[in-house]
Simulated assay, not measured.
Amino acid sequence: MIMVGLVKSLKCTRHVKLLFSATTQTNRQIHRCLSSSCRPHDSVRTFISENTETAGEHSLTPELKLRLFTPNCRFWRERPELWPFDDPYWAIYWPGGQALSRFLLDNPEVCQDKKVLDVGSGCGASAIVAKLCGAAHVVANDIDPVAAIATHMNCELNGVEPPICVTNNMIGSEPERFDLILLGDMFYDEALATSLHGWLDRCIKTHGTRVLVGDPGRAQFEGHDIRRLLHQQAQFELPESVREENYGLTFSCVWSYSPEL
């Protein structure tokens, strides 16, 4: 399948941000809303509802319902410049996140009664699964404020209370006390992988945090020095539709991170 428009742009250049004139002002408004006691921006919720479709049945976690881009959605083939926000990584269920969510559902004791941080949370799938598996406290961290609204909507679809959504960049910040950090599809850029490397080391050294990584074997992930510090926990064969959407990637794995401290 050949994808065009916004979806193709996302998959080819995930680490490149498209800059639109309307983005900055809109995202500032959303940030203010999310950091206050007001409910998520109704107009953004409406936009998400009208431009995504409830899906997920063909993923590694068919028991989850998520608002995603599908071929039935306008922006599957629409010109990218017409999209009014930052790149909507939250509208795609990436294969690393799928593997991570599947692993947690199959092993609920991993996050049961734990304090969990989902970094680069996107659609919120892993944070939702942590909730479903009985985590005591869940934080979903994504620098795109629209992702936080999408996460709230996806929680509603799955009948769970939304996690705390943090839109500040937590990578590089002073480590907080989390029992488990989840990272799905975050090693798509070498510079980001390097910054994650140092920050995760500090989190583990300071609090003994467990770190789980989901990745389908992208070149930037396989070629980075951090790869030798990862130990495979599970491997999942991707469904056919997910393979087609990710240029033929066939498997996605979950890794535990054990740094040399």
Rank of each mutant, 00 (worst) to 15 (best):
E240R: 11
I128E: 05
M170W: 12
G217Q: 04
F221D: 00
F187M: 14
T206I: 10
S21E: 13
V44T: 13
S258K: 14
T13R: 10
T209W: 08
D42W: 13
S256W: 04
F187T: 05
E50I: 01
A234K: 13
G217W: 00
R74M: 07
A125I: 08
M153Y: 03
H137L: 02
I48Q: 06
T54H: 02
H152F: 13
F236R: 05
V211Q: 06
K115N: 06
P239D: 06
P95H: 06
A140E: 09
S101V: 04
V16Q: 07
E81A: 15
T13W: 15
L196S: 02
L261H: 15
Q232L: 11
K11Q: 14
N158Y: 04
R202V: 06
P239Q: 08
T206W: 10
K8V: 00
T70A: 02
T24A: 10
D106E: 15
D113W: 07
T209H: 13
D86V: 02
S43L: 07
G248E: 01
W90D: 04
L105W: 09
W94F: 09
Y247H: 14
E237Q: 10
T26R: 14
Q25A: 15
H224S: 09
E53D: 12
M186N: 15
T209D: 11
V242R: 00
L68S: 03
T46V: 04
L10M: 15
D215N: 14
R227M: 07
T250H: 10
H58M: 03
S241Y: 00
P62C: 06
R177T: 05
C155T: 01
N72R: 14
F178M: 02
D113L: 01
G120S: 11
R77S: 10
A140Y: 08
G172M: 01
T13G: 06
R77E: 13
F103C: 00
D225C: 11
R243T: 02
D225V: 10
C12V: 12
R177W: 07
R218T: 14
V4T: 12
N169T: 03
V7I: 11
Q220I: 08
W90G: 07
Q232W: 02
E109A: 14
D113Y: 01
E161P: 04
L10F: 10
I171Y: 03
A127R: 03
L18I: 02
V7E: 03
F187I: 05
F103V: 03
C165T: 08
F85H: 09
V138L: 05
R74Q: 07
L82W: 09
H231C: 15
T23H: 13
K131L: 11
T70D: 03
A150R: 01
A130I: 08
D142I: 04
V211M: 09
C73Y: 09
R210V: 02
E78W: 08
R218M: 12
V138C: 08
T46D: 12
I171Q: 04
R210C: 12
D215L: 00
E260T: 12
G96Q: 05
L230Y: 06
H231R: 15
G56P: 09
V166M: 03
S195N: 11
W83D: 10
N107P: 10
A234R: 12
M153K: 07
L100M: 11
E237F: 00
H224L: 03
F47Y: 15
R177G: 02
L238T: 07
D86C: 02
G122C: 06
S241D: 04
L100F: 11
G97S: 09
M186L: 15
